[in-house]
Write a protein that binds this DNA or RNA. Structure first.
Lengths: 208, 208
DNA sequence: TTTTGCGTTAACAAAATTGTTAGATAAAAT
DNA sequence: ATTTTATCTAACAATTTTGTTAACGCAAAA
């Protein structure tokens, strides 16, 4: 009967840690503050996770897959024709970011502050990206030749996609009070923003 | 004759602090590390600036004007016709960001971690933005009615502009090794990216 | 019932980080 | 030359943050 509470306490710390780390980063997070947030003494945190460092690792592990999936999503569904594939990429990437709105800023900050820590994930990305970029560029060039779309550099286009999809979530809290009613209803804003980004990218590749 | 060195030492600390704060943020920065970077003992840092907090304030003060100017720049030159004005806004904003590539991420992180600290700058922004948004929207609607451009929400368009202009600099170091030769020559990349962003926004508002 | 082991707490210890001070040194002023 | 002032250093002190431990309770197993 204590089994449920036990799981719950360990879990509570993990969830509190994620909140704290996502908002304040590794350096800004305080183990006591995490414990407080979770409603336990800070000795408990050390009991379950030993060190701040190890607790942090758990949070990274828990989110590494999401990070990788999100980036991949931006490349769209490879079975679709390239124009639809790009559109699908913007849309799918946006959805994943919207589901994990704090993750990109957190991850980018950590990787900038301590790049050496993420060599694993990083090297994998490089090799995957190289291949994917090449094949997508090839398809783009072919489609452009057929007059189906503008010829663009896939890397520039993906950079635009990531920018448009991620940045609004980074500035969300900052922008909200400035934007009048635009962001008052979160769900509605997210929906509008997604449409805006798809439209922006589609227009960018439209043959003119 | 020591006069030059004196200025230089105090100055060295300030510059080292800016580097450290910009990369690691307030919490990640270490006063000893700043001192080391500046080539002085950390007692010197306290001698000149008393506390880490006060040193940080100096960095904020030094950059507050740039932050405000950059945001304003995105709204373009008010004397121009709206379509050109928007184009000018993208371009001018990009240039300012490119000149201070670390500033946006730093500032956004700080304002997210400690929003209460920036109420002054923030309230000012809100009141200015409200007026500017309204007048620009008005011009856009008029131009749209004349068939000169697509009707768009100025707030969405500005959000896109900021996203496209700022985010590439946030991911710069992360993206560079992934992007093949695209970012090898920094100056060239910046120039290309600027053109890309202008093109993207111009296509977004083009009447179709 | 005793034992075993996990969960818990409070108090403590260690480490990391920031901040201070007394006095040395050099420069400037009188 | 002497006083005064600013700069600087090394050693130390304070504070903050992280991590440990000893003892206790309690539930389940033996």
């Amino acid at each position: 009967m204590k089994e449920q509470e036990k799981i719950s306490k360990e879990q509570l710390i993990l969830e509190a840690a994620e909140q704290e780390f996502f908002i304040k980063g590794y350096d800004g997070a305080r183990t006591t503050s995490i414990a407080q947030r979770a409603g336990v003494t800070h000795a408990m945190l050390h009991y379950y996770y030993r060190t701040k460092e190890q607790l942090f690792e758990r949070i990274i592990e828990k989110n590494a897959k999401t990070i990788a999936e999100t980036m991949l999503a931006a490349m769209g569904n490879p079975t679709m024709p390239i124009v639809e594939r790009l559109k699908d990429g913007v849309s799918a990437h946006f959805d994943l970011v919207a589901t994990n709105p704090l993750l990109p800023r957190f991850f980018l900050n950590e990787i900038i502050a301590r790049p050496e820590r993420y060599n694993l994930l990083y090297d994998k990305m490089k090799s995957i990206a190289g291949v994917l970029f090449a094949s997508m560029q090839c398809e783009i060039d072919a489609a452009a030749k057929r007059g189906e779309m503008e010829r663009v550099d896939i890397r520039m286009l993906l950079m635009s996609t990531l920018s448009l999809n991620i940045f609004p979530f980074i500035i969300h809290d900052f922008a909200q009070p400035v934007m009048g009613d635009l962001m008052a209803d979160r769900e509605q804003f997210i929906q509008q923003r997604k449409a805006e980004n798809v439209e922006t990218i589609m227009r960018r590749i439209k043959k003119m």
